[in-house]
Amino acid sequence: MNRRMDPTLVSLAAALPVLLVLGYALPDWLTFYLQVSLASGLAALAVMLQMRAGLVNFGQGLYYCLGAYAGGMSGHFLGITDALVLLLLAVVLSVAVSFIVGFLVARYREIFYAMLSLALSMILYGLLVRAEALGSTDGFNLPSTTFLGYAPEGQALREAGYVFTCIVALAIAAAVHRYLRSPLGAIGEAVRENELRVEYLGASPRYVVHLIYVMAAAIAGIGGVLAGISVGHVDPNLAYWTTSGQFVFIALLSGTGNVAAPLIGAFLLVMIRVYAVEYSPYTWQMILGGVMLLIIMFLPGGLWSLTRLRKKGGLT
């Protein structure tokens, strides 16, 4: 890094006060969509992290769900309500599971990586559906969250949840950005470009993929906890393949150019859906699919590729 501040980091830091101000300025329902989309945006960020290494995870819902359930079960059964503790528990669980599973998954590439991760998330889905103590498909509700001993209620709780989500999401995004700029992050990209050459250079692609897999799991787990906290309810659908498919969709729609892209993309997707449902309650999926096709056709690099277009324009 040179002496100038990294613009993405500056932007992320500046985004926090803006989001907080917006939290007060915008109506409640809109900040709620914002909050929920930051949570799912983190899972999409996890997918994007893997995409940077050429890996597409069609089962990221596994860790999104695992995180949400880790948080939810600690709250529901152990009475732990502190958001930071829940976050920590989710990360520990996600990292533990992904570390073990990673030995298997890290051997796979391309479509097989996608399919194996999909199978694993569907196994979790199956297990949770059988778990009657956890409410099966109905899931269960989370108790109100506390923040380092601060136990707000009603509107204050909502606001605290929003602030917490914003801080965590932006901090994670900043951390991922720093990682991607580090030498280790660069190897990830090299794995995508040409794995064999990475080996010739003395690095182990399998080790790199394993590491990325675990990091992505932790991030998705955090996203899951945030989703659980904001919605107040968890259910096995978080691990269903369509949920994971949505994360892949967000990551591709927004592009892999910048860590902020999946966060913005998640919100964009939610808003497209809300208005599609409003204008055409019976065919909103068709609108979503149409938008998707148009983006893939005309902006194959995702929305973020608009930056590049502009830059090209600037050069000529």
Binding site: T8, V10, L22, A25, L26, L306
Partner: peptide, 22 residues
């Protein structure tokens, strides 16, 4: 991608929110 990134970031993010808010 220095200043441009920043500008795009804000154009995208704020544009979205204003659109939704309006």
């Amino acid at each position: 991608m220095h200043k441009k990134t920043m500008t795009t970031f804000w154009t995208l993010a704020l544009g979205l929110l204003t659109a939704a808010g309006l």
